[in-house]
Amino acid sequence: MTATATAPGSASARESAAAPVYRPRRFTLSNAGLYVVVLVLSLFFLFPIYLIFLIGFTPQSYTLFAARPPLIPPALTWVNLQTGLSVSSTPFLPSMYFSLEVAFFVGALAVLIGIPTAYGLAKLGSRLAYGLTTVLFVVNMLPSITIAIPISVVFIKIGLYGTAISIGLAQELLALPVTVFLLVGAFQGLPRDLENQARVDGAGRFRAVYGNLVPLVRPALVAAFLLSWMLSWDESTFALILYNPAASATLPVNIFLSFTGRGSPVVGVAFSCIATIPVIILTVFLQKYLKGEDLAAGVRG
């Protein structure tokens, strides 16, 4: 249980009432050192993202083919994106469509399986719930490439090889655990009486769960869907091992192929820009849902 909300009158509420009110401190000489460190770290985190777009919008003679590529673009161009995303000569449209198909499948399946799993875990006795959580946690640690090869052997046999469903089913292994951890927290945050009340009013267990509880955890569901969507959008190991070279591949797989000598780098550059825009927006949006307790499978110190 993560009862992090501070109840009025609890120890920490009293403590913060007694302590002086903290206000964000302005820039002063005494915290100048802090701001220098913050600035350096921010540059470290932002610089590669800047480079993705710098390389995307600067003529290649100043980037890929320059001995001393400049950090500030001497000229800007649309040519890279036009060449890389050319509908007639690159796999842009089918690849984009395939990526979207896989990502929406992964997001939807995560929510579909995640709801009953998280509800069950929230209701189970702590020892059993702990064991099952550990199972999901272990799934997250298994090497993708180790799992992907036997899966692809099976999918070749049953004719699912290279389909969006087959890649989505494999990627779900990464999305499901984090979805479940997120939703368990949400379910546990609901008052116990809500479900009992619905049951007393004559709702069956399914109606109580889907009619009364699920609507209350909607923000967490949206977050879980988007997080799963994003994991799939970025994922490339399952997508690489399980794609069918004769059919479509996801954007990250095409980026991988173009940077490992099996395609034009300009395609990779253009695809990288396109693939990066939605995930930057999603990360900012999802920030408040990315909780350490969920990502570490409920560690409590």
Partner: peptide, 10 residues
């Protein structure tokens, strides 16, 4: 936390 969203291949 921005890098968490950037695809590994990118």
């Amino acid at each position: 936390i921005l890098p968490i969203g950037i695809a590994t291949v990118v």
